[in-house]
Design a protein around this nucleic acid. Structure first.
Lengths: 335, 335
DNA sequence: TTGAAAGCGCTAACAC
DNA sequence: GTGTTAGCGCTTTCAA
C-alpha cells in the first residue's frame, strides 16, 4: 500500500506538505505543489479516507437507512439525499432495514460506527423504545416518516393526513361511496395518519366507515398484490366497493397488476388511487391518480436538520411537507 | 467522543481486553466480558470503524458505482450486491455516476479512498483509456456490463446478444417484420451487443435491416419517452413499423407511457419488448414481454470475483450470464 | 513556506 | 487471561 510518506519521499518534501497540497491548502509553493502532484500521479496515490476521518474527526459521510433500496420510493429518497449532500462534499452511506427490526438495528449501528456526521433513518419495524434509545445517544439522528412523542424536532414527515383526505375526497367527488383502503401492515405514523385521513373524509361526507373494507399488507409490490387478492376473495362476490385507495403507489402497482390478471378493468370496474407520485405511477395503465409526496424536499430538510443537530444547533419542530393531489386516469366518474 | 479507553477505565480492564470482547475473541474471562459489555452499554459506546479499518488494514467495505440508484435496474443490482456481501460481514458503499464521466470518476475515486476491498463499477460515460488506467491501478476492480479488451477477466456481463436475438425472434415469430429498435445512446458493450442481436436476427430471417428504424436515447425512463416521440414523428405517418424492441425495460416503460398519451394501443397498434425483466415490467399494461437478466446472479459473480482479485487470486474469464425469454402480453400476433 | 512530531481510536504482537 | 505498547495513515499544531 502506498502512503503519503511514499509520495513525500518521491516529491522530496515532508508529509505535511503533501497533506497540504492534497487538501488544497494555499500556503504551498508552486514548486512543491507540482512535485507532489507529479509524485501522486506517478504512484497512483489516494489519500486513505479512514485515516483522514480519524485525524480530522470527520468522516465526511452521511448515513441513511431505508427499507430496501430497490423499492422505488426509497431509491428516490436515497438519490435525493445524495444530491443534497454532494455539493457539501459529503458522501452517502446507505443501510437497508428490509422491514425487519434486527436488520434495521444493525444498519443503524453500522452507520454510527462509521462515524457518519448525519443520520437519516426510516425505521418501520423497530419498536419505539429502541428508537428512543438511539435518539438519546445519537443527537443528530433524524427519523423519516415516523414521529416519536417527545422527539418531534427529530422527525421529518409529510402531511400524510391531508394527502389521504385529498385523494379520498376526489374519489367521493367522482361518486364513489364504497371505498376500500389498503394500508401498510407496519403501523407507524404514516400509515396511521393516512388511515385517519381516509376515515375522516368518509365521515365528513356522511359515509359509514366499514373496517371490513380496510386490509393490511406489507408496503411492497407483493403486499399490494396480496391485498388485492384478499379484497377480491372477500369482497368482489358481493360487490361492496367500487374504489380502493392505496397506502402507496408501489402497493397500488401491485394491486393493479393483480387486478389485471383477474380481468378486472381499472378504472371501469374499480377505481384506484395511490400515494407518493413516483415516476412509476405515471407509467401504469391507467396512469395513477395519486398524492404528490415531495420526497426530494423531505430528504433535503432531513439532511440539513441532521447536519444542524450535529453541529449542536437547536432546531425547531419541522413542518410537515405539503402534499398535493395529482389527477390522472385511474378514477372513474360514477353516479 | 467516548473511546475504547473510556470503556476500559469504567470496566476496570485494559483497552486490549475491551477490544477482545468487542471483537468476539474467546480468550477472555466471563468476568471481564460482563464488565466490558456493561460499561459499553452504560456509555453507549461504538467502535470507531475508521480507526478499526486503519488498524486492521481492512475497511470491511465493498464499493459499487451505478448510474443512478433510483433507476430500478440499478436499485436491483445494488440490493443484490448488498445481499451478497452482508453475510460475509461487509458493508456496501454506493456511488452514483449519473451518466456523466466526471461524476463517474469522482465516485470511483471516493470508493478507492475509502479503502473498499472490492469494487464493482458500472461506468457508461467514462472513456476506455481512463477505465484502463483504473483497472491497472486497482487490481480488484470489476466492470459491469462493459468489456475492455485485454481485461476480460475483470468484466462481468450477461449474454446481451443472445437475449436480444431471443426477443426479436419472438417478434418475428409473431409475424412482425417491420421492427424498430430503441437503443441506449451510451455505446458501451451492452448496447452494441443488443443492437447486433437485433440486426443479426433480422438478417437470419431475411428481413432487410433499416438503420432508420434504430433510434438512440439515454437509457432512462425519459429516454424511452424521447425515443417514442422521435419514432412517432418520423415514422408513424408512413406506418413503417409494427413493433419496437427496446434496449431495456425502463426505456420500454417510458415509451409505453408516451404511446398511451398518444392514444396508441399496445400491443394492438404497436408491439413492444424490453430487456432486464425488472418487476416493473410485470406492472406495465400490457405486461411486458422481455428478456430475463439475472441481475442478482451477475452481482454475486462480480462481487466474488472482486473479492478473489483482492486476495491476489487469479480468476478465469467470467462466462456471460445466461438470459432467457419471458413472454407476456406486449406482442400482438399478426400475419 | 516548510518540517518534526504528537495524536486521532483502534488492533495485535508481545510479555507476563 | 490480561496489560503494555507500537503502529495503522493521516492532519495539524508549533517552531523554524
Amino acid at each position: 500500500m502506498t502512503t503519503i510518506r511514499d509520495v513525500a519521499r518521491l516529491a522530496n518534501v515532508s508529509v505535511a506538505t503533501v497533506s497540504r497540497v492534497l487538501n488544497g491548502s494555499t500556503k504551498v509553493s508552486q514548486k512543491s505543489k507540482d512535485a507532489v502532484l507529479q509524485a501522486q500521479k506517478e504512484l497512483g496515490f489516494y489519500l486513505n479516507a479512514n485515516a483522514r476521518a480519524l485525524a480530522q474527526r470527520d468522516s465526511h459521510t452521511i448515513g441513511i437507512v431505508v427499507s430496501e433500496i430497490s423499492d422505488p420510493y426509497f431509491g428516490t429518497a436515497v438519490s435525493a439525499c445524495d444530491d443534497a449532500i454532494h455539493d457539501l462534499g459529503y458522501n452517502l452511506i446507505v443501510g437497508q432495514g428490509y422491514h425487519n427490526a434486527e436488520r434495521e438495528k444493525r444498519a443503524i449501528d453500522d452507520l454510527i460506527s462509521y462515524q457518519c456526521r448525519g443520520l437519516i433513518v426510516h425505521a418501520l419495524a423497530l419498536d419505539e423504545e429502541t428508537l428512543k434509545g438511539y435518539l438519546d445517544t445519537i443527537p443528530y439522528m433524524v427519523l423519516l416518516n415516523r414521529v416519536i412523542k417527545g422527539y418531534e424536532s427529530r422527525c421529518q414527515t409529510c402531511d400524510n393526513y391531508a394527502g389521504e383526505c385529498l385523494v379520498v375526497q376526489e374519489l367521493i367527488d367522482n361518486g364513489h361511496t364504497k371505498i376500500a383502503f389498503i394500508n401498510s401492515s407496519h403501523r407507524i405514523l404514516d400509515s396511521d395518519e393516512r388511515l385517519e385521513g381516509y376515515i375522516d373524509t368518509l365521515k365528513k361526507n356522511h359515509i359509514q366507515y366499514d373496517p371490513n373494507l380496510v386490509v393490511m399488507a406489507p408496503p411492497s409490490l407483493e403486499g399490494g398484490s396480496t391485498a388485492a387478492q384478499a379484497l377480491l376473495e372477500r369482497l368482489l362476490p358481493v360487490k361492496d366497493f367500487t374504489a380502493v385507495a392505496c397506502y402507496s403507489d408501489v402497493m397500488a402497482a401491485g394491486l393493479m397488476a393483480t387486478m389485471r390478471d383477474h380481468k378486472i378493468k381499472i378504472p371501469d370496474d374499480i377505481s384506484v388511487t395511490g400515494f407518493d407520485n413516483l415516476y412509476l405511477s405515471s407509467c401504469l395503465t391507467p396512469a395513477l391518480t395519486t398524492v404528490d409526496n415531495p420526497v426530494k424536499k423531505m430528504a433535503e430538510e432531513a439532511i440539513s436538520r441532521s447536519l444542524m443537530l450535529y453541529e449542536g444547533e437547536s432546531v425547531p419542530e419541522p413542518h410537515k411537507i405539503d402534499v398535493s393531489l395529482v389527477i390522472r386516469d385511474s378514477i372513474k366518474k360514477i353516479n
